[in-house]
Simulated assay, not measured.
Amino acid sequence: MNKLKFPIFLFLIDAVTKLLAVLLLPFNEYVPINDDLSFYLTYNKTPFGAGTFYLGMDNVDAAIYSALLGFLYGSLFLLVNKIIRGDKLRIVIFIALIYGLSYINIQLPSIGFLHSWSPRSIALIKFSGIIWMVFLFFHYTKIKSYAYLWGMLLAAALGNAVNYLIPPYGAVDFISSEYLTRRIGMGIFNFADVLVYLFGILFLLRILLSLFTILKLNIQGICRYAKFRNGKGQRS
C-alpha cells in the first residue's frame, strides 16, 4: 500500500489542476503567464497523443495497436518475471525484448470496423492496454527508484484515461509553451503529460546510472583480479 501512495498522490494533483483549470480558465483563450508560458484551456477528445505508438499508421489503427502492444508488453513482462530472477536482469532483458520487437518490420493490417467507433471508445481501449502494462511494471518492480518511475507513468495514464469517462469526455489540456512547442512539438498539455516526459528523461538517466554502476563493478573486479595475479606471481 505504501508504494501506491506515490501514484495516487500524483493522480490527485493532476485531477485537482484539471478541475481548477475547468472552473477558472476561459475556454479556448490564452491567459499569458510570461513571454513563453500561457494558460489555454482546451479538450482533446481524440484518442491520440501521449501513449500512442504511431507505427507509421492511420491514427485510429495506431491507437488500437497501442492498446494491443500494451497488453503484449505487459504479458511479456509477466513471462520474464516468472522465468528470470533478479530485478535488474529482468529490466535489461525486457527492454532488449521491446527494442527487438520494435525492429521487426511487419505490415500490420488496418482494423477497418473500428474506424466507426467513437474517439472516446478508442481512447479508452488504448488506455486500458497502457494501464495494464504500466501497472504490471509498477507492481512487480522491486527496485524503489524504478517503481517510483513506473508509478509516475501510471498516474499519468490514469489521469488522462479518467478524463474520457466523465464530462467533457476528453483530456483536459490547459498549459501552452511556445518553446516546448517549437522544440518537441508538445502543443497544449497538462500535468499528466509533464509526468510522461519527465518519466522518459528520468528513466533514461536511471538506465545509464545502472549501466555505469555495472561497468564500474566490472572494472573494479578486473583490477582486483589483476592485483591478485600480480601478488601471486611475486610470491612464486
Rank of each mutant, 00 (worst) to 15 (best):
residue 130 I to V: 15
residue 112 G to K: 14
residue 64 I to F: 13
residue 29 E to I: 07
residue 8 I to Q: 01
residue 195 L to H: 03
residue 24 L to Y: 10
residue 217 L to D: 15
residue 93 I to W: 07
residue 199 F to Q: 01
residue 38 S to T: 10
residue 30 Y to E: 12
residue 100 G to Q: 08
residue 184 I to N: 02
residue 46 T to V: 01
residue 105 N to G: 01
residue 208 L to H: 00
residue 140 Y to I: 05
residue 167 P to F: 06
residue 176 S to T: 01
residue 150 W to C: 04
residue 159 G to K: 08
residue 209 L to M: 11
residue 215 L to A: 13
residue 5 K to D: 03
residue 164 Y to I: 04
residue 45 K to E: 13
residue 226 A to G: 00
residue 41 L to C: 08
residue 100 G to V: 05
residue 70 G to E: 06
residue 188 I to W: 09
residue 57 M to R: 05
residue 98 I to Y: 06
residue 120 R to C: 03
residue 22 V to T: 12
residue 157 A to F: 10
residue 32 P to S: 08
residue 117 W to F: 15
residue 119 P to S: 05
residue 218 N to I: 10
residue 225 Y to E: 15
residue 105 N to F: 09
residue 151 G to Y: 08
residue 177 S to R: 01
residue 155 A to L: 09
residue 121 S to A: 14
residue 220 Q to Y: 11
residue 172 V to Q: 06
residue 173 D to Q: 09
residue 32 P to F: 05
residue 142 K to H: 09
residue 207 I to A: 07
residue 71 F to R: 04
residue 115 H to S: 10
residue 9 F to S: 14
residue 235 R to H: 11
residue 121 S to D: 14
residue 234 Q to V: 15
residue 166 I to L: 14
residue 38 S to L: 03
residue 219 I to S: 06
residue 78 L to Q: 09
residue 26 P to A: 09
residue 126 K to V: 09
residue 22 V to C: 07
residue 14 D to C: 04
residue 214 I to D: 13
residue 194 V to S: 14
residue 203 F to C: 04
residue 219 I to F: 06
residue 214 I to W: 10
residue 142 K to F: 02
residue 151 G to T: 04
residue 157 A to C: 07
residue 224 R to Y: 12
residue 217 L to A: 11
residue 77 F to H: 06
residue 12 L to V: 15
residue 233 G to P: 00
residue 109 P to A: 04
residue 97 L to D: 03
residue 219 I to H: 04
residue 48 F to G: 13
residue 84 I to E: 03
residue 207 I to M: 13
residue 21 A to V: 08
residue 204 L to F: 13
residue 149 L to R: 05
residue 25 L to H: 11
residue 18 K to W: 05
residue 94 F to D: 00
residue 38 S to M: 08
residue 9 F to P: 10
residue 104 I to M: 09
residue 199 F to V: 01
residue 45 K to M: 11
residue 1 M to V: 11
residue 194 V to I: 15
residue 232 K to R: 14
residue 60 V to E: 03
residue 149 L to Q: 06
residue 95 I to F: 12
residue 26 P to W: 07
residue 143 I to F: 04
residue 157 A to S: 15
residue 23 L to K: 15
residue 84 I to T: 12
residue 153 L to T: 00
residue 52 T to F: 09
residue 70 G to K: 09
residue 172 V to K: 03
residue 75 S to E: 01
residue 10 L to V: 03
residue 191 F to K: 02
residue 226 A to W: 11
residue 124 L to E: 08
residue 36 D to G: 06
residue 56 G to R: 03
